[in-house]
Design a binder for these strands. Structure first.
Lengths: 333, 333
DNA sequence: TTGAAAGCGCTAACAC
DNA sequence: GTGTTAGCGCTTTCAA
């Protein structure tokens, strides 16, 4: 293991051929290479443990076989499955993925995108930080394809979207609650600035309206367990009467359940709970959480498919995919 | 946004300076550059929206400012926090991180390491797939620094380790159980091939011995929720009498709790449960899980520190860090 | 079927 | 303070 790496030049020298020949063999562009030379070269490569320098080849081919994954936070239970889906498909196509956590900060997002552009990634898969983007100037400068996953925003270089039909999912969920007999369904929503949350709220309202239910109550908060607890506290303090809660995501739902249990409310007898997302924890808590499950792994996988498709074919027409949610009835409803 | 990227040459041309000057300014090596030229150049860069091509500079500096993170599975709740810790420190030092999932397969691990070497990453942080590594030949060829996290194996290029004192943590945990008055503590262990599991089993045995407790029962399984359920079933079928279970990780503990609850055992009254890891879910389930918490975020963060230190200083002496666990008593014990 | 040579975009001596 | 120039390791015409 010498300190100086062996290069394509060395291989060419040892094998008594040109670097062009070696290059063709490495890259399977060896339609015009005789069996003998190929084997000879392959042997030398093996013998000297030659590792091609992909930086160098990227410099000329302008392809790095690397993509960026820009998400709010990998330690938020919603994202690991998406990341895994992305990585699985990317890897199967020979790509590697650089993961970036924005914490929903637009500044961090821009910093990361700039960095990814300097590193010449072939494309980016992103769950955008905000619904609205003020800094249009910045986005105009992006010159690599972007595929949006989970959250939709309106920027130029977006070549595809992999979203979930939040409206439909929430509508079906709330309708189910109504059919089950719940009369006073309140909603603990996420931040209105996220359009996932917006769609779910709209669906909730629509479902109530379509079923001629007057009672409507939305409390806006955050996508967190703490907000679930806090929201229930608020409801209780204000003496709002309710027999069910539709939560904008599972974390909120879990918080709500904890709080409800701590004041001795029985679930689902006193209060029925429906979440949204289908994170792993929901199967484990007691009572198990009924939820509207998003196909997270598939979202990641599909977005990698779309992106790599765009990279390869260089298609300009957007490819948008909408995946369906699945209503999963467990014990909380 | 022209299709042809603007290069350092263009900037030099427009600013009427040499590429060397531009390069120095970009890289803050501008001690010998006049204010005027610097500002002029910076303006041109801004105006033409110049983005330096880091592939090209990496080719000459031999530094990519990228590291690899090789772990079993990002969607296993144990790893996202580690990943976040790694990414946070790496990013603060200007590095980006490529994430690879091995599913504990040695073949995948080797494939990924090869790929990372081709991409010329500056180093690798890895939770190795197996305790023993047969393919010594492969590891000998690795010529970039590796820092091990969580699991220790014995290979050449390891420049540091960030581990947790599994023995001490488990020993303290089991001792606590004994002091609490539990007499018949069984252990649901993980796979013996993992040395994390091995250490915890040894500590369990030692703690029993040191407290003169004869009853000892270890059942070997896997690090999974399913195994927790199954393990309890086995224990019950075989009519093993026990009043507490020490589980080799939290997933096992959660499975055990679910199974115990389903046969109407009360926790901790009938059976006390202690887990290991401190994953998020443990705070949420009912009863909340007592556990030996590993500092996962810190493990990731520290391992990035060690690796980047090695990369910068090029130190050859290994740096090993052992972090302490924390016994967290909640409701299951 | 193979090779010569130009060049990808940048850095780092070294010269001025 | 600033510029010249020789590569870094590879791919890709084009010619032989």
């Amino acid at each position: 293991m010498s300190k100086n790496k062996v290069t394509i030049k060395d291989i060419a020298l040892y094998a008594q051929v040109s670097t062009a020949t070696v290059s063709k063999i490495i890259n399977n562009k060896d339609t015009n290479i005789s069996k003998e030379t190929r084997e000879k070269v392959l042997n030398i490569i093996e013998k000297y443990n030659y590792i091609p320098n992909r930086m160098a080849s990227s410099l000329v081919t302008k392809k790095t076989k690397t993509i960026g994954l820009v998400i709010p936070d990998i330690s938020n239970p919603f994202f690991p499955e998406i990341a895994r889906g992305v990585e699985d498909h990317a890897n199967s196509e020979g790509y590697s993925v650089i993961v970036c956590n924005t914490d929903n900060s637009v500044e961090k997002e821009e910093k990361y995108i700039s960095m990814l552009m300097e590193k010449m990634v072939d494309g980016i898969i992103m769950t955008a930080a905000e619904k609205e983007n003020e800094n249009i100037d910045f986005y105009k400068r992006i010159d690599i394809p972007i595929v949006l996953v989970d959250r939709d925003i309106n920027i130029d270089m977006v070549k595809g979207r992999v979203l979930v039909d939040n409206f439909k999912g929430a509508y079906n969920g709330v309708s189910y609650m109504i059919h089950k007999g719940y009369k006073k369904i309140v909603m603990l929503s996420g931040p209105e600035s996220k359009n996932t949350s917006y769609d779910r709220v709209e669906a909730y309202k629509q479902a109530l309206k379509d079923h001629n239910i007057q009672f409507e109550c939305v409390v806006e908060g955050k996508y967190s367990l703490e907000w679930g607890k806090e929201g229930v506290k608020k409801l209780l303090e204000k003496n709002v009467e309710f027999d069910a809660i539709f939560c904008a995501n599972d974390l909120i739902a879990i918080g709500a359940i904890k709080e409800l249990k701590s004041v001795k409310k029985s679930i689902p007898k006193d209060v029925g709970i429906l979440g949204f997302d289908g994170i792993y924890i929901g199967e484990i808590i007691d009572p198990t959480l009924s939820t509207i499950k998003q196909p997270n792994y598939m979202m990641g996988y599909k977005s990698a498919e779309v992106l790599i498709d765009v990279i390869n074919k260089n298609t300009t027409n957007n490819k948008d995919i909408t995946l369906d949610t699945e209503l999963i009835i467990r014990d909380s409803l």
